[in-house]
Structures are given as C-alpha cells and as structure tokens.
Amino acid sequence: MKTRGTARNPANRFQPIATDRTFDDGWYQDPDDELCPDSVATEVMRETVTSIISRNQSPDVPFDQSINPYRGCEHACIYCFARPTHAYWDLSPGLDFETRLIAKPNAARKLRETFDKPGYRPSPIALGMNTDAYQPIEREHRITRSLLEVMRDYHHPVSIITKGGLILRDLDLLTELASDNLCSVRISLTTLDNDLKRRMEPRTAAPATRLALIRKLSAAGVPVGIILGPVIPFVNDHEIEEILEAASEAGARQASWIMLRLPYELDELFQGWLQRHFPERASHVMNRIRDLRGGRSYDSTFGRRMTGTGPYAELIRQRFRQRARKLGLNLHQSEPLRTDLFRRPGGEQMVLW
C-alpha cells in the first residue's frame, strides 16, 4: 500500500481466530483493479490513561523512566520492534499498527499529578521510546508539546529519540530546557538513500531533513546525536561510515548503533517485506540474522538482543567504533542531564487547590 510499511495484517499472538486466505469466498479483490484501494486512512482513538510514566529495568537501555504519548506509529517503519505491542490491544502488529493509533490526551495532566506527588524523585524521562513522539498525528494532537511544557515548568530532565521533522516546532521549549542541561535529542538515522527510506520508513522525514534537524538543533544549543539503527545485514550495513560522516558534519557529537530485532509477529512482517522489496537477497539477509541470534530470528537475552553475537556483530562493532573515533564522535562522555533543578511550581500541596 502506498505510504504504508506493510499491507499485511496478521492476527496477533493472543488472537485465537485466524483467517484462512486460501479459501475463495468470492470477495477477492485484484490488486490491479482500480476499485481496490491502494492505501487506508489513519484512525486515531483516544485513551484516558490512569498513569503516564513507564518504568524500565532493562540493562540494555540508558533510562529507567519513559513516556509514550501514542500507541502505534504512523511512521510505518517495517522494522519497528514496537509493532508486537499492538497485540495487547487486540490489534494487528501489521497494518493496524500504522493506521489504528491510540492517543493519550490527558497525558500532560497525569504527568503533573505524578510530579506533584511528595514521594516522586526525578530522573531523566525518555520521551517516545516505544513509538515516535513526533509522528504525523502529533501535528494535530500536540500531546508531545504539552508534555514538554510540563517538563519545562517543573525543570525536569527529558531525552528524545525521533525521526520526525516536527521536532523543530518545539525548538523554543527544547532550547529553554537545554540551557539548563535538562534536554538531549537523538535523531534516528537509518539510511541516506531516499529510495530505501521510502520503502523501509515510508512516512518519516527524508534523510536530508534529518541531517538538517541535527544542524538546527546543534546550532540552537541542544545536545544532539544519532542512533544508527537498526543495522540490517545487506540492506543498510554498507552505509555505516557514510552515515556517521554525514551526521558528524551536520553537528552530531554522540552516536550509537542497534542491530535489527525481530520479536514475535515482526519476524513474519519483516520477511514479507524482504520478499516484496529484495527477493533476490531475502534468504541471504535472514541467514545472516540467524547467525547473529544463535540460529534463530531473535534472541531476547539482555546484553545480546541489541547487537547480536558472532563475527558479523563484531565486524559491525569495529567498523562503527573506528569511524566514530576518526570523526571525533563519542570522544567526550555526554554530561548527565541535571535532576537537582526539579521544582514544583505551586509547591507539593498545589494539587489540593
């Protein structure tokens, strides 16, 4: 489907009912039929949440608190590790994940209530880790901006990972937070190839736009780096050095990488995407992925799930490290975001008024 990562909508792992597509019930639509839709509209549902901060205990990520303003992501990245989470809502990790989204309109109010609790102790909050906080529907719903306004009011540290150009809309808030070392941004930079971007991440910002984001954020004094991920064998792994050079030239000072992960339903979806876009190398890609994961498509073991193991993983690690060192990336450890400036604008009893 045009501007969508997948046209498949497989049943989720909790759904006992499966569809048999081999049976012809007379309703089949020929994809070449002009009456057959080539895409579907985005549907946004609303969820009134009872809590907004998620706690994390994984040793593989550098944060213990995160907030996701939305469930599902219109960016439609085929490789997104968060796709299987849509199954918890009785939705498909496939097309549903891209088109049937859930917004949390009371997120900012819940965040204020959390911050106002006397027992709350501040630590950096990662914003939009499961799905992108700056996906297209943020333009209308503005939930991410409302959360950043709360962060600013309470002087609370926040980090952001995004591949959405909409982040520049909030440059005023990000600059204000960064002036007190309360904010950092990582731009997800997966490829510099526009055609590959279109196939792999159809509704994300173009590579050139992401480099422009780095330049503008850096010029505004916002600490900015990149995440090169996921690295996909024989799809974008040849771009590692070029991506690092472009990011460094644009003003990035930190860089990290992540290997492709294929948990649960994502395995089927990604292999379908490979067969559609790169049929001549699909088996080669999957064989290398299994080499990384001990013969399986995925290994969820802490310490290995982000990078894989074996000679290929070590090769990627060395290539990344050597070029990053040559470019001066990661030479200096980024300064930890401050937590000592946290304050409650109306005092701890504010919620009683």
Rank of each mutant, 00 (worst) to 15 (best):
G5V: 00
N9G: 08
R13Y: 13
T19P: 03
W27I: 01
Q29F: 02
D32E: 14
D33C: 00
L35I: 01
P37V: 01
A41I: 03
E43A: 04
V44T: 11
M45C: 02
E47G: 00
I52L: 08
I53S: 13
R55E: 15
P59N: 14
D64R: 15
N68M: 01
N68S: 04
E74F: 05
A76C: 14
Y79K: 11
P84W: 08
A87E: 05
D90K: 11
S92A: 05
D96T: 03
T99K: 08
R100P: 00
R100D: 02
N106R: 07
A107Y: 08
R109G: 02
K110A: 11
K110Q: 15
L111V: 10
T114F: 02
F115K: 10
D116W: 04
D116M: 01
G119C: 08
N130F: 09
P136V: 06
I137Q: 14
L147P: 02
M151L: 12
H156F: 06
P157T: 04
P157V: 03
P157H: 04
V158C: 15
S159M: 15
R169N: 13
L174K: 04
T175S: 15
S184V: 01
S184F: 00
S188I: 01
L192Q: 08
L192F: 09
E201R: 09
E201K: 09
K216R: 13
S218G: 14
A219S: 12
A220F: 00
V222P: 00
L228T: 01
G229P: 01
P230Y: 06
P230H: 05
V231R: 11
V231S: 09
D237Y: 06
H238F: 11
H238M: 09
S248R: 13
S248Q: 11
E249N: 03
E249K: 09
A250L: 12
W257E: 09
I258A: 05
L262G: 10
Y264P: 02
L266P: 10
L266S: 13
L269P: 12
L274D: 12
R276Y: 01
P279Y: 03
P279W: 06
S283L: 03
H284F: 02
N287T: 11
N287W: 03
R288E: 14
I289V: 15
D291L: 01
G295L: 09
R296D: 05
R296G: 03
D299P: 00
S300E: 15
T301N: 13
R304Q: 07
T307M: 04
G308L: 08
G310I: 10
L315K: 07
F320Q: 08
R325S: 05
R325L: 03
R325K: 07
Q333Y: 07
E335Q: 15
R338T: 01
R344T: 14
P345F: 10
G346W: 07
